[in-house]
Design a protein around this nucleic acid. Structure first.
Lengths: 322, 322
DNA sequence: TCAAAAGTGTTATCCTTACACCCATGT
DNA sequence: ACATGGGTGTAAGGATAACACTTTTGA
């Protein structure tokens, strides 16, 4: 360690340990009647969150406590998303360091303990351009594309303009590129950078923008939500996490509708059924339901055994068999 | 917020904010002469780490500073691994809460600023059973298997014994199951649970165990390293991160050897070349080298353009085209 | 001449995707 | 009868894995 380092460390030593705080933030997801929903608290357009405290046993259990206290919703599956640090202005010029640790949680809506302030909101209220289940949303080409191109052309350098255009094309699938539903975070960040979301312009409502880009949230909660959606959309493809969102028994079409709700696009029915059955993710209960209209459907339940069995991992390297 | 909540928060308020500390920990990887190496500090068997301080601009920049101060190694690519909290005993009974934020970093060994305390160690020194480049390591079947089975049979319940056996089979590829190189963390945790790593038995060396299970590290640094290796082994399959570990120009075989070093297993040469070239990840420099023995090899460089172009994401759902 | 590494070509197999079609029930 | 959803079969296309084979250098 050189001299400069020593000096710096000594200088910091007094204040560094005492200005730190950690916040736990949850993206709690459920699928209610075919709509993917996120748990928000009250009128605030905020995700459930709270500080990590001394007598929380772990980060996860701290998160569970806060969510349950704020919304009455017990959590099942939990997975860490991302940790970041920000300077948080509290007083006039006093700054505190806050570490935000965000989580994705999957549950089913529980009507039992209906708490006052909790609220399930479709995540497409916040990201209207993410729902491609009925085809490409018109506003994507009619509103977002021109505004993004306008932003791209606003750059001084030729090279920057080209780059911005291509980033927009890739993220939103313009110009015959395929729509990639996993790029939720990319898209939000692009809109933020282009000043097309309310959070980016700091509360100043810029007229017509607000409705089309979806509801905004406090601080960076919408960004965290985008991270959660992206993670979930990618994860359902290689881990059987959908079942955390399903009731104990369900039909294959209900399962399919749930996947479609999350992915924001339709899947092919016959192929979907084969995929599920060949992986032996479910087993028949032996019963059927006629509640769905049309021919009665077989009921299935998730085979919990697969959680131990299949630690499947798709390889993409040309490995030798040996 | 109900009464109970209010009371609880008030009771905690005094002490909670002042007992918190955040540590940044880095798994810094380079491949030196065909061996995957991790940067450790000095004689300590520890990963570079340091506390997050008030005037670090961000978590990442704090990490960069610490690694550079401790080892003289500048970092390129950085990616977050995981955040967890632990109770840290400092004095006799005074406990402090520590949040550990771990990162994976990829670099090339820089001979320039040779700092005193830095040390590149092959990660197979810490995980000897992870190197399958010359076939399955004998100790896997001769030592680990019997000890794991012994552990499995030591459970009181029949059901637990069956479960332990199957977990071991899956993780280590016993009984004709395929070896899955990505399960590094699973394997380490299994060994830990079975009491077969030094960290689990708390410093008490249990005779012959230490050499075969690899070198141990302080605290949970080896666990963090396992997390980093697992992440990297999985990531090289869908993102072009290997190039962070390569010199500016290289032959295709050198690239292959690097991938093999990371994956811990061999890949098929012709197929590997096709895979690389068809994805247009590299371009010829026009030069060749005869340094490798045998026919001179063409030199390639990474096409940085692909970083913008391909935000490729492998879908595994039977999506409809529409 | 041989060893070692650089390269090319071909084939079998599996998985994904798309699409056509039939079945069972309620109105 | 027909709408709605349940459920099965199959064929085209692409990606992967395995392997056989040729080329070019240095010792």
């Amino acid at each position: 360690m050189d001299d400069q380092t020593k000096k710096t460390r000594a200088g910091r030593a007094k204040r560094k340990a005492h200005d730190l705080k950690a916040d736990l933030i949850a993206v709690v997801v459920a699928v209610n009647e075919g709509e993917p929903c996120v748990l928000t608290i009250g009128q605030a357009n905020a995700l459930p969150s709270g500080p990590f405290e001394f007598d929380h046993r772990s980060l996860q259990s701290g998160l569970r406590e806060w969510v349950e206290q704020q919304t009455g919703q017990p959590l099942g599956y939990i997975e860490q998303l991302y940790t970041f640090a920000d300077r948080d202005r509290i007083g006039a010029e006093y700054q505190q360091r806050v570490i935000s640790i965000s989580y994705l949680a999957l549950t089913r809506e529980e009507y039992a303990g209906v708490s006052a302030k909790r609220c399930w909101e479709s995540w497409y209220d916040y990201f209207p351009f993410e729902d491609h289940r009925s085809g490409t949303p018109p506003m994507l080409l009619e509103v977002l594309r021109p505004r993004l191109m306008e932003w791209a052309e606003g750059a001084p350098e030729v090279e920057t303009r080209r780059e911005r255009r291509r980033r927009a094309e890739v993220a939103f699938g313009f110009d015959d590129r395929a729509w990639n539903e996993e790029l939720v975070l990319h898209r939000y960040e692009l809109l933020y950078e282009a000043g097309l979301v309310e959070e980016a312009v700091g509360g100043r409502r810029s007229g017509d923008l607000v409705p089309v880009q979806g509801r905004s949230m406090i601080a960076d909660h919408r960004r965290i939500m985008a991270t959660g959606i992206a993670r979930l959309r990618s994860k359902i493809k290689y881990r059987p996490v959908v079942f955390e969102l399903m009731p104990p028994v369900f039909t294959l079409l209900q399962l399919q509708r749930t996947v479609e709700a999350l992915a924001g696009r339709l899947v092919n029915k016959p192929n979907f059924r084969r995929l599920i059955e060949q992986q032996e993710l479910v087993e028949e209960t032996g019963e059927t339901t006629a509640e769905t209209g049309g021919r009665p459907a077989k009921l299935y339940r998730f085979r919990h055994a697969v959680l131990d069995e299949t630690v499947m991992a798709g390889t993409k390297l040309p490995l030798t068999r040996s």
